[in-house]
């Protein structure tokens, strides 16, 4: 089981690969990833594919909206990533 901190690192690492120019340290936990990082649907799909590659988590399309902020991502991954 990964800790919140470990999951946070994974999320930030995957985001960093999609938006290398973004200042991820300045990203607030509740801020919208799409708005703050200016990522579009292609970037977002790449983000979910990246999480899948790192954690093996399968994110159904209907769950994509549950990944709107950093905090949301961590919570979602905590309950879904390793309970497969």
């Amino acid at each position: 089981m990964r800790t919140r901190e470990e999951l946070r690192e994974v999320v930030l690492r995957v985001l960093g690969r999609i938006a290398p120019e973004a200042d991820l340290k300045a990203l607030g936990p509740a801020e919208s990833l799409r708005e703050e990082l200016d990522i579009d649907s292609v970037d977002f799909l790449n983000f979910m594919i990246g999480l899948n590659a790192e954690l093996g988590v399968e994110i159904p399309e209907a769950d994509a909206r549950k990944l709107s902020s950093l905090e949301d991502c961590i919570s979602y991954l905590l309950s879904n990533a390793e309970s497969r």
């Binding site: 690969r17 999609i18 938006a19 579009d40 970037d43 790449n46």
Partner: peptide
């Protein structure tokens, strides 16, 4: 192709 191209375009 789209996923790959967009990612490479934005990461340079």
């Amino acid at each position: 192709s789209i996923l790959d191209l967009v990612n490479r375009a934005r990461t340079g």
